Amino acid sequence: MSNRFLLMGQDADLINRLERLSKQASWSFDRVTTPTGLVVELEHEQPAGVWWDLGAATLDTAIATMTLIRPQVQGPITIFTTKMTDRIQRKLYQARVDDVIAFPFDDRVLRALIAQRTWLYQHMQAQMPKAPAKATAAQVITIGSWQVDQQNYQVKKAGSLVELTPKEFQLLSYLIAHRNQVLSRDQLVNGVWGYDILNTSRIVDIHISHLRDKLEDDPHYPVHLLTIRGFGYKLAE
């Protein structure tokens, strides 16, 4: 199983300490510097866990982002903060983070804590039964040369399999469910991500661009994933 984590933060001291700790524990981590960057990165990688420096964003932004990503992060979420209060802890735990760590902290205790949390998530995932599902004809939807298998989460273009991230597939499925309708960016983010997040337009635009790159014959002149200027997007059959 993966031992690669994802860090959102810019504090040099925290980065150095986590680098030393990771080296000792045979872990590694990628770093992003914005909440939006974290959300986008999670579409391409399922990390062993998420580390978040509260000094790099406001508490409200942290809570909004945690609520957004919690369903898709299959590992522990650890928050680091220089200011520990009952209110901060209460709100973050309500957003389903696993641990709130205050500076200064003991590296050895932190290493043991993260190892225990990671083991617990991996152990629980290993115990979950996996039942293969079969698609029926009604669950395979055709849009032009695309075939979207919503039961098995597969997309084919002209018979060739196209690799989509989970969120790209969810966005495509949402557009299919509302095909030929104009949807605003707010409608898309609420329907797909399920939460009002910052930089909404950027998140939606990035994922639409990725879908066009993978599915349209010419991403610059899309036939199905259309931009309706001043309103949003539409999936045209």
Rank of each mutant, 00 (worst) to 15 (best):
residue 203 I to S: 00
residue 230 G to W: 06
residue 201 S to R: 13
residue 204 V to Q: 01
residue 64 A to T: 15
residue 210 H to V: 02
residue 36 T to E: 14
residue 189 V to N: 02
residue 130 K to E: 07
residue 189 V to P: 00
residue 124 M to V: 07
residue 201 S to K: 12
residue 33 T to P: 01
residue 88 I to G: 04
residue 194 G to S: 02
residue 186 D to E: 08
residue 5 F to V: 02
residue 231 F to N: 12
residue 125 Q to R: 15
residue 153 Y to G: 05
residue 121 Y to H: 14
residue 101 I to Y: 05
residue 152 N to E: 10
residue 136 T to A: 14
residue 140 V to M: 10
residue 123 H to D: 13
residue 22 S to A: 12
residue 199 N to Q: 14
residue 110 L to D: 08
residue 182 V to H: 04
residue 212 R to Q: 03
residue 133 A to T: 02
residue 169 F to P: 04
residue 205 D to Y: 02
residue 203 I to Q: 01
residue 181 Q to W: 01
residue 83 K to N: 13
residue 103 F to V: 04
residue 204 V to M: 01
residue 15 I to Y: 05
residue 219 P to E: 04
residue 173 S to A: 08
residue 88 I to R: 12
residue 213 D to R: 13
residue 15 I to H: 07
residue 21 L to I: 08
residue 11 D to G: 02
residue 107 D to S: 11
residue 235 L to V: 07
residue 185 R to L: 00
residue 184 S to C: 02
residue 132 P to D: 04
residue 200 T to L: 00
residue 1 M to S: 07
residue 98 D to K: 04
residue 161 L to W: 01
residue 162 V to H: 05
residue 155 V to M: 01
residue 182 V to S: 11
residue 83 K to R: 13
residue 71 P to K: 12
residue 95 A to Y: 01
residue 145 S to A: 08
residue 57 A to P: 11
residue 14 L to V: 03
residue 60 D to Q: 12
residue 33 T to Y: 12
residue 3 N to K: 10
residue 120 L to K: 15
residue 138 A to C: 08
residue 176 I to E: 05
residue 191 G to T: 00
residue 156 K to R: 11
residue 25 A to T: 07
residue 237 E to F: 13
residue 191 G to N: 01
residue 111 R to I: 00
residue 10 Q to K: 09
residue 40 V to M: 15
residue 112 A to D: 11
residue 77 I to S: 14
residue 41 E to S: 13
residue 203 I to W: 00
residue 131 A to M: 11
residue 236 A to N: 11
residue 143 I to N: 00
residue 147 Q to W: 03
residue 181 Q to G: 02
residue 140 V to P: 15
residue 109 V to H: 15
residue 208 I to Q: 06
residue 136 T to R: 10
residue 124 M to K: 13
residue 201 S to T: 11
residue 212 R to W: 03
residue 101 I to H: 07
residue 107 D to V: 03
residue 216 E to V: 07
residue 72 Q to S: 14
residue 1 M to P: 02
residue 39 V to P: 06
residue 77 I to F: 09
residue 2 S to W: 04
residue 82 T to K: 10
residue 122 Q to K: 10
residue 35 P to L: 09
residue 75 G to V: 15
residue 46 Q to V: 10
residue 108 R to T: 12
residue 109 V to W: 15
residue 133 A to F: 01
residue 174 Y to L: 06
residue 30 D to V: 14
residue 68 L to D: 15
residue 45 E to D: 14
residue 25 A to Q: 12
residue 105 F to G: 07
residue 14 L to Q: 02
residue 21 L to P: 10
residue 128 M to K: 11
residue 165 T to C: 09
residue 88 I to V: 14
residue 209 S to Y: 11
residue 193 W to K: 01
residue 128 M to E: 13
residue 165 T to V: 02
residue 55 G to P: 02
residue 144 G to E: 02
residue 154 Q to A: 14
residue 195 Y to D: 04
residue 112 A to I: 03
residue 106 D to P: 08
residue 58 T to Y: 08
residue 123 H to V: 06
residue 27 W to L: 09
residue 103 F to N: 05
residue 42 L to V: 07
residue 21 L to H: 10
residue 61 T to K: 13
residue 221 Y to Q: 15
residue 103 F to A: 07
residue 160 S to A: 09
residue 152 N to D: 05
residue 80 F to M: 08
residue 184 S to M: 03
residue 26 S to L: 15
residue 86 D to F: 04
residue 169 F to L: 06
